[in-house]
């Protein structure tokens, strides 16, 4: 039994079957990649996992609890964090404040009104945020506005914001999309470092095969809204079904 269980999930948009009978089990602590050609249903699946979309049928359970019908913030409180395709950060706030917010969110869980306390008096939380910035090597930029960072740094910051919450599951939606090669390699190294130092389970949705094969421990290939194969990377490469899905029947 994995930490995340997707059972018989289907989702239709009008006449389009975006997901049909998806079954997926993610083992705790794994780095699991989901790949597939455009329109395979990867993003729909991710949106179902984080509560943005409600599937027509099926169930999604995280650590034994259903995630369906919950608001995104409730799903996050269960221990699921998400990294977006374009980094979603607080651009108008400083780098340090960006990391402080998830620290406060984690401390308070639900909503608390700390209207008359001072941020700088929260020594433990400040230390936690500073330590996280050191971990991702951004301590020098802590007083910069997050919106003025480079694409690679924004991604790094977004991951720091997710990790500081110590989530049990980290979902990454094309974390290297639109990045230069150097930034991509930096991101791969960062993910490897996270994997080595933290007990977090990661699900990564990715287009870039270079990223997938240098990171993933297990790979699920999706096509036309349904998982085609699930295996370790070495065996995925040679699988004829995968080649068919990516290159079409004529080449198979």
């Amino acid at each position: 039994m994995g930490i995340l269980e997707v059972k018989d999930v289907s989702k239709r948009f009008g006449g389009l079957r975006a997901l049909s009978d998806v079954n997926l089990s993610i083992a705790e602590g794994a780095l699991h990649a989901i790949i597939g050609p455009n329109g395979a249903g990867k993003s729909t699946l991710l949106n179902v996992l984080v509560g943005k979309l409600l599937p027509d049928t099926g169930s999604v359970t995280f650590a034994g609890q259903s995630v369906l019908g919950r608001q995104p913030h409730q799903i996050n409180q269960m221990g699921i964090a998400r990294v977006f395709q374009t980094p979603e950060i607080f651009g108008a706030l400083t780098v340090l404040e960006n990391v402080l917010i998830p620290c406060f969110a984690k401390r308070d869980g639900a909503y608390r009104l700390h209207a008359l306390e001072a941020v700088r008096d929260e020594t433990a939380i400040n230390a936690q945020a500073e330590a996280m910035l050191v971990d991702v090597n951004m301590q020098d930029k802590r007083h910069m506005l997050a919106g003025s960072l480079s694409r690679g740094d924004k991604r790094r910051l977004e991951m720091a914001m997710c990790l500081v919450q110590e989530p049990r599951l980290l979902l990454l939606d094309e974390p290297t999309a639109g990045m230069a090669r150097a930034d991509t390699n930096n991101t791969i190294d960062l993910l490897k470092q996270i994997k080595a130092t933290r007990p977090v389970t990661m699900v990564i949705i990715e287009h870039d095969m270079h990223v997938v094969f240098s990171l993933a421990e297990r790979i699920t290939v999706m096509a036309q809204g349904t998982p085609l194969v699930e295996d370790i990377p070495a065996r995925i490469k040679g699988n004829p079904k995968v080649q068919e899905a990516y290159l079409g029947t004529a080449h198979a």
Partner: peptide
């Protein structure tokens, strides 16, 4: 005091990016 409080920081975060707020576990 409100401007310098965690609450004030959250309010600025609401202005900056509501999507990220929600995915940080904050309604």
């Amino acid at each position: 005091r409100i401007f310098r409080s965690p609450f004030g920081m959250m309010l600025r975060a609401v202005k900056s990016n509501q999507q990220r707020m929600r995915f940080t576990g904050l309604n």
